Amino acid sequence: MELFEERSGDGTPTGTIVERGVAHSEGRCHGTAHIWIARANEKSGCEVLLQKRSAWKDSNPGCYDISSAGHLSAGDTYLEGALREIGEELGIHAEAEELRDLGLLEKVSHGVFYGKPFHDHEVSAVYLYTKPVEAEKLHLQESEVEAVRWMDLKECQKAVREGSIPNCIDIRELEMIEKAWFAGEKTKDEE
């Protein structure tokens, strides 16, 4: 049984513990960690690694999603959750200083999966990981991740806006990556 700690809209833990199924059936606010893996490319300057969610996931099965993401267990910090998820889902043993914190993002969404209502209210810490990653050498957690693929950041933004690929990506996260990535590029050019 997975236990989450409810959070306020600003991400602060409330001290109330709730079971995962209850959190999603009642839309209780909880924390998640989202880790985006990005690298430079020739096309737009940046591409992101997308994961294709397992067909067995309780929400958005078979959809493209964040490189690695997961719920915070009760008592976890955002960073602890991020480091655990990138290790479990992709087999990457990242260090805390390798994750660039891009900020918090609150998201509320509703859907129906397997005939049951699903109400998701989460506050996510969004991180950027830029160490070299070879997609074909990752150790994917089969129960979570069906496959991974690199996609140009601009093409990904367009696909998410148009809905031309099955996805559960919040466009605001791609905008956060774009801002962080190209702000970093400007800093390098100015040096």
Rank of each mutant, 00 (worst) to 15 (best):
M1P: 13
F4Q: 07
F4E: 03
F4T: 01
E6W: 08
G9A: 15
I17T: 12
A23W: 05
S25K: 12
S25W: 08
C29P: 14
H30K: 13
G31W: 04
A33Q: 06
W36H: 11
I37C: 10
A38K: 07
A40V: 07
K43H: 13
S44C: 13
V48N: 04
Q51G: 05
R53H: 02
S59F: 15
N60D: 13
P61I: 05
C63H: 11
D65K: 14
I66N: 15
I66R: 09
G75I: 04
G75L: 06
G81W: 02
A82Q: 05
R84T: 06
A94M: 05
E95W: 11
E95G: 11
A96K: 10
L102S: 01
G103C: 01
G103F: 00
L104V: 02
K107F: 07
G111R: 03
F113M: 05
P117H: 07
H119D: 08
H121E: 09
T130I: 09
V133N: 03
V133F: 02
A135F: 04
A135T: 04
E146I: 06
A147E: 15
A147W: 10
D152A: 05
K154I: 08
Q157E: 15
V160W: 08
E162G: 07
S164Q: 04
I165T: 04
I171D: 14
M176L: 15
I177M: 08
E178P: 07
K186A: 08
D189F: 09
